[in-house]
Design a protein around this nucleic acid. Structure first.
Length: 523
RNA sequence: GGGCCCAUAGCUCAGCGGUUAGAGCGACUCCCUCAUAAGGAGCAGGUCGCAGGUUCAAAUCCUGCUGGGCCUACCA
């Protein structure tokens, strides 16, 4: 099976903050999950560089436009790398020539199909904002909403339009035929009611004279066959998903990867991905993506994340303090995907200490330590002295793995972690019930001790697989401490069989997986 | 104006028609000592936003209200 997943491409106006990271981490977890299931996985991210906001941001930062986008590219990539987000392709819409070809080809096909046409665009243009407004947007005095002393000019300009209004019925039919096209389903209802109100055509180009000139050329992708216009955001940005599949240069590659399996996006751009994008593809005769997964927004300490108020956190700094695994765990455990959630330092600390250090980390530590102490580091084989406690542990484990899988397939990250944690909890209980430290003092209980130590190690082996998509580094460390080889693609399916802990394995040195940060050493 | 979401224990949330409303964190009590002052058990804590209605039965369905948030088509 192939699996092609994308995230939204971001405006390189400023460095990304923790809110941007949430979407990328969520998509990365799903990409890693599919790789672990043995799927041939392709994960695409990128930057939306062609907006006219980008030259403005360059100006504001006293940099040339090219210099600025290169700088932002490095900044974004560094941020994503720091949170262990692992795209296979990172598109830059102003730099990658295959993307320009893809955008122009998609436009050309929609034009040939008669769904792109030239029309007259009218509006009130504020020269200060460089923006068009409709009458309803202006202040009662007829002034620009952002510059209340300026009266915008009434302007008409020729633009290309996309005939979205023709697609209402086809889009509704698509929603009917594909109930999981939009998840969570609340967003499908939102889009459905939008469609039922009827659609208006939208403009897909801008006159070239309003575009910034960079290196002697207008900033943006030229409209094919019309040097007076550049593509406006829709045919330029959304198309990146298609570019990464090889469109239009490599039809064999497109055949293999397209349609995309999932576009992961924020709730603010649902309409563009669930209405505009499928209609554009339909017009061009290209298959529609299988699914759009819509996430909510993140607040920071209860407040809207905003550059202007300074309410932001740099993910790189968070990673330096807590480690990438903990940040990934926290945002997916505490911020629900399907609605808005809050990033809160106190809760991060609590999750880190309670879930990661005390529950999971300490389970590994006590297990590796006991195997070292009582069995010279050699992970024992189960002895056959098993009882209800052992079968219960196994049953919980099997249910945890199945639960995690079901939740991940449904974009329920906190549900998946909840399911996995039932085994973390049960394994700690199992250790306490069996009191291996007492078994170790009685030679007659040696066989039972083997079973108990093996069972605990086996629980940890499974945990280290199921948690790998969330916490890749910590899980590799778990496997190392357990004496296991690194995971291979397809490792997830191994866990169907409890008891496949390799024979003759020697554990490593017990080292805290998530050191407590709230305790001062030596006090 | 229209459409949509949310409101449940101190905190974060689950439950979405049917026994005394659940979990985690935090508080308190006890047990254990392998372990990162970690682990386990127990206990306490809620007129399920407010007001009506439907039903044998409502946190759960309907209506209205209050408070918070989002979208409303052209700039993600």
């Amino acid at each position: 099976m192939k699996y092609y997943i994308t995230t939204a491409i971001d405006y390189p106006n400023a460095a990304p903050h923790i809110g941007h990271s949430y979407e990328k981490i969520a998509a990365d977890v799903i990409a890693r999950y599919h790789r672990l299931c043995g799927d041939e996985t392709f994960f695409c991210m990128g930057l939306d560089e062609n907006s006219q906001h980008v030259p403005k941001a360059a100006d504001a930062n006293g940099m040339g436009v090219r210099e600025w986008v290169d700088h932002m590219d490095a900044t974004f990539r560094r941020t994503w790398a720091s949170v262990l987000v692992s795209p296979d392709r990172f598109i830059r819409t102003a730099v990658d020539q295959d993307h320009a070809r893809a955008s122009q080809e998609l436009f050309r096909r929609a034009l040939a199909a008669g769904d792109v046409y030239k029309g007259l665009y009218t509006g009130y243009y504020c020269h200060n904002c460089n923006t068009f407004y409709e009458v309803a947007d202006l202040t009662p005095a007829g002034c620009c909403p952002n510059h209340q002393t300026i009266t915008p000019d009434y302007l008409e300009e020729e633009n290309y339009f996309f005939a979205l209004s023709r697609y209402t019925d086809r889009l509704l039919a698509h929603l009917d035929a594909h109930p999981d096209f939009i998840v969570p389903h609340v967003w499908a209802s939102e889009i459905r009611s939008l469609l039922q109100r009827g659609l208006r055509d939208f403009s897909v180009s801008r006159p070239v004279r309003s575009a910034r000139v960079v290196d002697g050329k207008p900033w943006g992708i030229a409209v094919p066959g019309d040097p007076d216009h550049v593509l406006y955001v829709w045919f330029d940005a959304l198309t990146n998903y298609l570019t990464a599949s090889g469109f239009p240069d490599d039809p064999g590659r497109v055949e293999h990867w397209w349609p995309a399996d999932t576009h992961v996006i924020g709730k603010d751009i649902t309409r563009f991905h669930c209405v505009y994008w499928p209609a554009m593809l339909m017009a061009a005769g290209v298959p529609v993506p299988r699914q759009v997964a819509v996430h909510g927004f993140m607040t920071l300490e209860g407040q809207r994340i905003s550059k202007t108020t300074g309410n932001t956190i740099d993910p790189v700094e968070l990673v330096q303090e807590w480690g990438a695994d903990a940040i990934r765990y926290y945002v997916l455990r505490d911020v629900s995907f399907d609605r808005d959630g809050d990033f809160n330092r106190a809760n991060l600390r609590t999750r880190y200490t309670s879930d990661l250090a005390n529950d999971l980390g300490n389970l590994l530590n006590r297990t590796v330590s006991m195997i070292g102490r009582y069995r010279g580091g050699l992970v024992p084989k189960p002895s056959g002295h098993s009882d209800l406690r052992d079968s219960d542990l196994q049953n919980i484990a099997i249910r945890a793995g199945a639960g995690a899988r079901a939740c991940l397939e449904a974009w329920d990250f906190d549900g998946a972690l909840d399911a996995v944690w039932t085994l973390v909890k049960r394994a700690n209980q199992y250790v306490d019930e069996n009191q291996p430290w007492k078994l170790a003092r009685d030679e007659a209980q040696s066989a039972r001790l083997d079973t108990v130590l093996h069972g605990t190690a086996e629980a940890l082996r499974n945990l280290s697989i199921w948690l790998t998509p969330f916490m890749p580094t910590a899980c590799a460390t778990m496997q190392e401490q357990l004496g296991l080889p690194p995971l291979v693609a397809g490792a997830w399916s191994d866990t169907v069989e409890w008891g496949s802990f390799p024979a003759g394995v020697t554990v490593g040195t017990p080292t805290p997986l998530f050191p407590r940060k709230d305790l001062v050493p030596g006090t």
